[in-house]
Simulated scan of single mutants.
Amino acid sequence: MPALGARKLRELTAEDLDRWLEGKADSLSTATLRDIRSILKRVISRAQSRDKVKRNVALLCEVPIGQAGRPSKSLTFDQAEAVLKAAEDSPLHAYIVLSLLIGARTEEMRELRWNHVDLIGKPRATPPVPPAIMVWRSVRAGGDTKTRKSRRTLALPNRAVDALAAHGERQNLWRANTSRTWKDDDLVFVSHTAAPLDAANVRREFRKVVRAAGLSGKEWTPREMRHSFVSLLSADGMPLEQISRLVGHSSTAVTETVYRKQIKPVLLEGAQVMDKLFPESPGAV
Score class of each variant (00 low, 15 high):
86 A>L: 01
110 R>I: 05
76 T>I: 02
171 Q>W: 09
118 D>H: 13
97 V>L: 09
194 A>C: 03
88 E>A: 09
48 Q>I: 09
145 T>N: 14
143 G>C: 09
50 R>E: 15
135 V>K: 01
160 A>V: 05
64 P>H: 01
65 I>K: 07
3 A>V: 06
182 W>H: 15
128 P>A: 00
40 L>K: 09
246 L>M: 09
24 K>P: 03
262 Q>N: 12
232 L>Q: 07
201 N>S: 07
274 M>K: 14
232 L>D: 11
180 R>Q: 01
167 H>W: 11
84 L>W: 00
189 F>Y: 10
214 G>T: 08
168 G>M: 10
154 L>G: 02
137 R>A: 13
165 A>H: 05
37 R>H: 15
193 T>F: 04
67 Q>N: 10
227 H>K: 11
115 N>F: 08
101 L>H: 05
24 K>W: 12
127 P>A: 07
133 I>D: 02
36 I>V: 00
191 S>G: 01
188 V>W: 02
152 R>K: 14
133 I>G: 02
228 S>C: 09
251 S>M: 10
159 R>C: 03
197 L>W: 03
271 A>V: 01
163 A>V: 11
65 I>R: 08
48 Q>E: 13
65 I>C: 11
37 R>D: 06
158 N>M: 00
20 W>P: 03
93 H>W: 00
247 V>M: 06
160 A>G: 05
177 N>R: 02
147 T>K: 12
247 V>K: 03
230 V>R: 00
234 S>W: 01
258 V>P: 13
160 A>H: 04
103 G>N: 00
256 E>V: 02
56 N>G: 04
130 P>C: 10
20 W>F: 13
240 L>F: 01
54 K>T: 04
278 F>S: 10
145 T>E: 09
124 R>M: 10
115 N>P: 11
271 A>Q: 01
167 H>I: 06
104 A>V: 14
261 K>I: 09
152 R>H: 08
25 A>V: 11
271 A>I: 01
246 L>G: 10
255 T>P: 10
270 G>H: 05
245 R>P: 12
6 A>I: 06
27 S>M: 15
3 A>R: 07
261 K>V: 08
105 R>N: 15
127 P>R: 11
93 H>P: 00
227 H>G: 15
266 V>C: 12
156 L>G: 05
36 I>N: 00
15 E>A: 06
260 R>E: 15
114 W>C: 13
154 L>K: 03
111 E>I: 03
23 G>E: 05
42 R>G: 03
10 R>P: 04
154 L>V: 09
1 M>S: 10
170 R>Q: 04
70 R>Q: 03
242 Q>E: 13
95 Y>R: 12
166 A>W: 11
105 R>S: 14
249 H>I: 15
265 P>R: 04
